[in-house]
Design a binder for these strands. Structure first.
Lengths: 343, 343
DNA sequence: TTGTATGCGTTATCAC
DNA sequence: GTGATAACGCATACAA
């Protein structure tokens, strides 16, 4: 009874004894097909539940209407916000989004790039793993003329479009705020040495100190490897031992800051009176933890949406002019003041 | 200088003055090609940086090696864990994953299904929106013989493979635990009326009361619409007004439970001594909030990985035997006891 | 207004 | 061992 075969233009054509071309044109609303024929085609298509085989269309048109995004990990508020932004905007423009994770692993990232190239996606959005900067496989994307947009975790050495925030300024704002509420000795639990935004946040920290003539003390800087809750906890413990008189902490990200808060809470150290803490990213947790965490709001969703729009521009420019756009969009961040810095 | 054209079998063949067939065979390691020829092909392929055009391959083999997953929203710890599991397992098996969101909207979900069907994905994994159950568009997936696996938010009315937890039992465990620590009057901030797991958790709540001969009081049940932090906060406020003597709260999910905790904290109501609170899902936040939230651990990652494996089984069964597997896998949940229920 | 022919890149069949 | 040929489903240039 049930027609198990998937309907194609051909099966419609055969049913009506007309050519595949006419069916194709009718379905696409071309003007050079008679209203009568068109209606017949439409009816049969409806009846057969026809949907175009998009693989064939992709093959024919050389566009997959699919983009790939490679990020360190989906299970992370900031990255999933980015993904959300990308998907929403992509959807609006009829693009599909394939998600690949690098798990902060350079080899994995390389493999993912190869996969996407082979998959012939129309473009790629990437947030680099902490291990990578100007690796060969990134250059390969460029060489292949595949539209590329880097987002948040970028490399300054790769010439392509980028969507970023001003990490240095944002970090400056955070530390400046700590100083303004009276902190004199501020520690920085920083990220790994390689990633650009980790570097920039560190520079922002340093600049803010400079700005207020507070001498920089490298022993107050603790570098995370995995940038996790535990490191926030452990480094704070170490910090409070090394420098019992510290009165402010700027953490590379909220997760680390929450680890810091937890240690301070455990030790009954008063926040913010004895030690003020500020994080970075503004993920949901920050607003419900006790004390509520001050932080820098990083517009993940918006960054994702912008990245897609920029990628689309790249794709069009590449098709039409055969060259890249290479624009960098810097989105604003906001200082969010909550209990952990409200003296 | 740079070869702007993407290398194909043909370009390799031309360079070597051999046939496309031979190139194809050589690249795929067929035995009926001489070692010499093979090496030459391999060398040129390497030199040209050849990667097979997978769109063409998909077209030819009628497999896209791509699956689609439709979930309510990515920016949610549980769902992103599921995605993580799906992606990791898919990657291991050389599949790509396209992610689509329904935003808890039935119309959107329907549209996403149509898109995936048209995209000719090899299979679909879905976590249903709160609005849907046995909608036509789900049946359409079945009718089209597209492998389908429902995960977590399922419909009992659709006959396909499923990956779930035993929501009723898990909820029973949670409420049973509240009773065991001495709670006599337990409220339930439940989910919407439609979703199966919201129903099952409610039933688990009721069964646990029954089990201990505690009369069920429907006025102690508050139904969320959006299942968010604010609802947790507001319903708890309402609850404490309606029933000042309540001593336990079972919330449909951690997010709601955290809203409840916040209200109780704000009102200086002692947790757990005056009111004990337990959530559901065990997302990261629960373990760092104050007081630390007791909850039910829901293995999102594992569910996602299982869902992919089951989908693969479906895909193979469909190809080989032309029929579905329709297996239901129920994963274990764990009761996580933390401060919010440690009297 | 309709239809014919061609090709996209790959793979499978079958002949040489 | 090798290669010519067809086929997958669709879109387009062009012919009728």
């Amino acid at each position: 009874m049930k027609e198990s075969k998937v309907p194609t233009l051909k099966s419609i054509a055969e049913k009506l004894n007309i050519s595949v071309t006419t069916v194709s044109k009718a379905l696409k609303g071309y003007s050079d097909v008679s209203p009568v024929t068109r209606q017949k085609v439409l009816d049969i298509a409806e009846e057969l539940n026809y949907t175009p085989n998009s693989i064939a269309v992709n093959f024919r048109t050389k566009q997959s209407k699919t983009i790939g995004i490679i990020i360190p990990e989906v299970v992370h508020h900031f990255f999933s916000s980015i993904i959300n932004g990308v998907i929403e905007e992509a959807e609006r423009q009829n693009y599909f989004v394939i998600i690949l994770q690098s798990n902060e692993n350079k080899e994995m990232e390389k493999k993912q790039v190869e996969l996407l190239i082979s998959k012939r996606v129309d473009g790629i959005i990437m947030s680099l793993s902490n291990q990578s900067n100007d690796e060969d496989y990134l250059k390969k994307i460029i060489d292949r003329n595949i539209p590329l947009v880097l987002i948040d975790k970028i490399s300054k050495l790769i010439d392509c479009s980028k969507v970023i925030i001003d990490d240095k300024k944002a970090a400056f704002d955070a530390v400046n705020h700590l100083i303004n509420i009276g902190c004199k000795k501020i520690a920085h639990i920083r990220g790994p040495l390689n990633p650009q935004n980790s570097i920039d946040r560190f520079l922002g920290y340093k600049t803010a100190l400079d700005h207020h003539n507070i001498p920089f003390d490298s022993s107050l800087v603790y570098p995370c490897k995995r940038v996790c809750y535990e490191e926030g906890y452990d480094f704070t413990k170490q910090l409070m031992n090394d420098h019992p008189d510290v009165d402010g902490i700027f953490a590379i990200t909220d997760l680390v800051a929450v680890g810091a808060l937890t240690y301070l809470n455990d030790q009954q150290i008063k926040i913010p009176n004895q030690v003020a803490v500020i994080g970075f990213s503004n993920w949901f947790m920050s607003s419900v933890i006790s004390p509520k965490l001050s932080t820098i709001d990083q517009p993940g969703f918006k960054m994702g949406a912008q990245a897609f729009l920029l990628l689309k521009e790249e794709m069009e420019s590449m098709r039409n002019a055969g060259k890249r756009v290479c624009k960098t969009i810097t989105l604003n961040t906001d200082l969010i003041i909550r209990e952990s810095t409200s003296k």
